[in-house]
Design a protein around this nucleic acid. Structure first.
Lengths: 140, 140
DNA sequence: ATAATAAATGAGAATAATTCTCAACTAGGG
DNA sequence: CCCTAGTTGAGAATTATTCTCATTTATTAT
């Protein structure tokens, strides 16, 4: 059984078409999506799907540690299928969101465990600033 | 002139009692506060202060890069006076928020500049999980 | 398969944080 | 001290999210 469905099942939740659709949408898209975007996509598979179910299911998937929510600026929330040590750069000028990885990310987390005795299960790391294209225009 | 007021002035904004109070409240508290908390504190200095002004001023201070907003869980937004390389650990059990610093934080940012040609001006780094007290209870 | 049942859904109402509107007020320059 | 553009307060408006509840459905045992 596919990852995601497996965890839902194991935790005693029913595998409804709506849940399958939401899960599949996020997993296959491979990027962050707003609740509305997810809902629109889900409706192509389940035309009667209600928005509340999308909210409920995303909460559930978050609870099960399968998805993460990211906050881009101030607007509405975005979700994405969880991946390890995968952070975000958000350009304040063009709004572009670039993923990044750093070897130091792992070291920071070891630091946190060792120095603060804190066990990390989820991460929200967004660095905001200016991407190469936009930085140029700002200062000559 | 004090830091904060200086930047407001320089950018051409008026130094109203409300702005002074909001700025001073955040700066002197030294920790993150919700908009309501800030507003309550401000009202002890300016009893007629409106909530909208607190929202407007926090937006303004953020615009000027003097404060950062942090997202603790799902609730309403929190703000704090900006400090360098100062991140957060959020315990999912007791809700406690601990600040942390890591030498690797600086290295990550150098990585980002070098490898992604991205100029960081603001950071939102929250690691969620379980603090030492709560981690124990969870698994025996 | 089919029935029994606890869980899940859809639709829209309810909520709560944030933003907007606009008349009245005020900081700061001259 | 006056003028004026910028700022404020109060409450209405907006908008994302949550709640309610009657109806439907996935799953388990028969």
């Amino acid at each position: 059984m596919k990852a995601g469905l497996r965890e839902l099942k194991r935790a005693g939740f029913k595998l409804t078409p709506q849940r399958r659709a939401i899960l599949e949408t996020l997993k296959s898209s491979g990027k962050h999506m707003s609740v509305e975007e997810i809902h629109e996509k889900v409706k192509t598979k389940c035309p009667h799907a209600g928005l509340a179910t999308t909210y409920r299911t995303l909460d559930l998937l978050k609870e099960l540690n399968l998805v993460t929510d990211i906050n881009l600026g101030e607007e509405h929330k975005h979700y994405e299928w969880k991946r390890r040590h995968h952070y975000h750069l958000v350009c304040l000028e063009c709004g572009d969101v670039v993923e990044f990885r750093s070897n130091f990310a792992i070291k920071i987390e070891k630091n946190v465990l060792k120095d603060y005795d804190f066990e990390i299960t989820d991460r929200h790391v967004e660095f905001c600033g200016y991407c190469s294209r936009c930085a140029g225009g700002r200062e000559g």
